[in-house]
Design a protein around this nucleic acid. Structure first.
Lengths: 338, 338
DNA sequence: GCAGCGCTGGAAAGCGCTTTCCCGCCACGC
DNA sequence: GCGTGGCGGGAAAGCGCTTTCCAGCGCTGC
């Protein structure tokens, strides 16, 4: 194995042209090359199975074709949808996506960004949700600064305040709209399964939801915090049941948590929606197949990934751009009149 | 923006040592460096925020820290679970994962492999299932050959015959075991929602299932082919219903297809499992939350990803290794006695 | 008829690292 | 006292590309 690698020099030699000419032919520089030489180079390259060494190109050009994508957990449908959008756009642009997963550890996010900087990634999409923890926020900000100083672009999904391009879903507005629709169904007593209290996304959705309840003159909800995962939702729902709350409707701040909550309710013999209505947020694709179908606030997840990738790939000015995407309330079978 | 990048030379100069020494300190070569110089270099590097240029390193060392991961569709839980396993192992090894999605197009797989070769990726995990199409098979084989010749390693998940390391799930055995268990429930008439007829995974599972039925002396199933997706399962199930088949039990060759099929049954008022039993294959995590819970053949998906990454990362001999992982039949609420 | 220009091709200087090779230094053993 | 060997340090030669700069050549315009 390990036949000598085919280099540009090899191609040039066999085609009987200089290195410069071969390079010009094979990468579409601005300079013209006569058709004869061009043909010869192309043919030899083809024949030798030449593939340019991306590292060498990156080094010589001082820019790579890598785009970073940082998520908490790729098995979470929320992230995998965004990932699908990002990869689609990146691949269309001839770029290569580097996937990093943080496992929800903020310091891992910083590490990944640093690795991406080492690789001189052209851009990064940060899809993980931010916390309000000052220390990790500032480390992240510093790393982002270093990354952009070095010429890379950064976009965040769902969390601004970092001076980067951002795609912000209408978390607050979505929560509020959902609350209105649910109160319109006649519910008077609500519970919210919130994520960790320091997660910005969770806070925003909760805040919006509270505002919506208040709009409708309904008492504030019982709030139970739990992990931002399916199991977190499950635990939180159990806790809710144990608390003897009189809520007739539960809002889980993400669909994934709502799925866990439904499982808990089911196990405890609480019927949805007869005994308890429940709604989530995001509209992940798997929702199509739950029974009863889950009411939620729909976010165009793949599109959000595409937008983020789009932002980060076209140069843009120095201004940090913000694209807002609205959530749309979708009431399904899991919420009923009270 | 764009402050001059910090290079090794810069660090060396400020620390008052040679390039060679700085390099030796900052990358753990075999050579020793006195503690004094070493400290000085480390400190300056830290202070300047030095991050090595990965492209330059890759070029100089002639090997990169990239690991490729090729899947059909990252939003499919089957793939995202495998991806989670692969990324975990790769990140632990200090490597970086490049994610490529094919959208189920074989030629895209070849393109991606070629790109990965250009980046001198150290290894690639091919998770997409193979087809039996000779032409695309041989193009893929050629590309794999080129990749390995160049020093990279390749592992496939779930499909051998390419001369690479492979993780093979017990598709046939799993199908067979499932058939036995289902016949034991008293079913006599079966239908199978198979994937595209040229997909090896689908064929194996089907073949195993047929063998199992035959073991039990039960007539061969009605087979309906459809796309290897949720919607494919949905369509296939509709077709099955339209066909007036007398089957009392359906086996969908993947869970994702089974989910689609259940949706179709639900819409048509066919109760599961009272009117029709249904089983899938894979045991994707979302199954936990379907109602009724889906019977299936469990595959340790994340672990398969980990194993594949493990194979591809430790050198190993020239022998193509094969790791078999067994499927375990899990009967849940979606299958009942007949 | 000749300066000047536009155009194509090649030589060569990097890009930021790693690593080989060499040099000087300090035990150490005879 | 001097050859040996080991060891820490630096100079420099690449790694495979891109790109600048220069040379040559055929034209145009006066």
């Amino acid at each position: 194995m390990s036949a000598r690698q085919v280099t540009l020099a090899e191609v040039a030699r066999q085609a009987g042209v200089s290195l410069a000419t071969a390079s010009r032919v094979l990468n579409g520089s601005t300079r013209q090359v006569s058709e004869e030489l061009s043909d010869r180079v192309l043919r030899t390259a083809e024949q030798l199975g030449y593939v340019p060494n991306a590292s060498a190109q990156a080094l010589a050009r001082n820019s790579s074709s890598l785009v970073g994508l940082v998520v908490h957990d790729i098995t979470d449908p929320y992230f995998s949808c965004i990932a699908a959008g990002v990869t689609r756009v990146a691949e269309e642009a001839g770029l290569v996506v580097v996937l990093g997963t943080t496992g929800r550890r903020p310091e891992r996010e910083v590490e990944l960004l640093s690795t991406l900087r080492a690789h001189r990634a052209r851009a990064v999409v940060l899809a993980g949700s931010r916390t309000t923890d000052r220390a990790s926020q500032s480390r992240l900000a510093a790393e982002i600064e270093a990354f952009t100083e070095q010429g890379g672009r950064v976009a965040c999904v769902s969390q601004a305040k970092l001076g980067t391009d951002t795609v912000v879903p209408g978390n607050r507005a979505g929560g509020r709209a959902l609350a209105r629709e649910l109160t319109a169904l006649g519910h008077k007593k609500f519970a919210v399964l919130g994520g960790p209290s320091d997660l910005v996304v969770a806070r925003d959705r909760l805040a919006g939801f509270k505002a919506g309840l208040s709009d409708a003159g309904v008492a504030p909800p019982t709030v139970i915090n739990g992990a931002f995962t399916r199991d977190g939702g499950y635990e939180a729902a159990l806790e809710l049941l144990a608390s003897k709350s009189r809520a007739t409707c539960v809002f889980a701040v993400t669909d994934v948590m709502a799925m866990g909550a439904m499982a808990a309710l089911r196990e405890r013999g609480v019927r949805v929606p007869e005994d308890m209505s429940i709604a989530g947020f995001d509209d992940i694709p798997t929702l199509r197949d739950t029974v009863p179908a889950l009411s939620t606030v729909r976010l165009p997840l793949e599109e959000m990934g595409e937008i983020a990738a789009g932002l980060v790939l076209d140069a843009g000015g120095d201004e940090a751009r913000t694209v807002r995407v609205a959530g749309e309330v979708v009431l399904r079978a899991s919420t009923a009149h009270n």
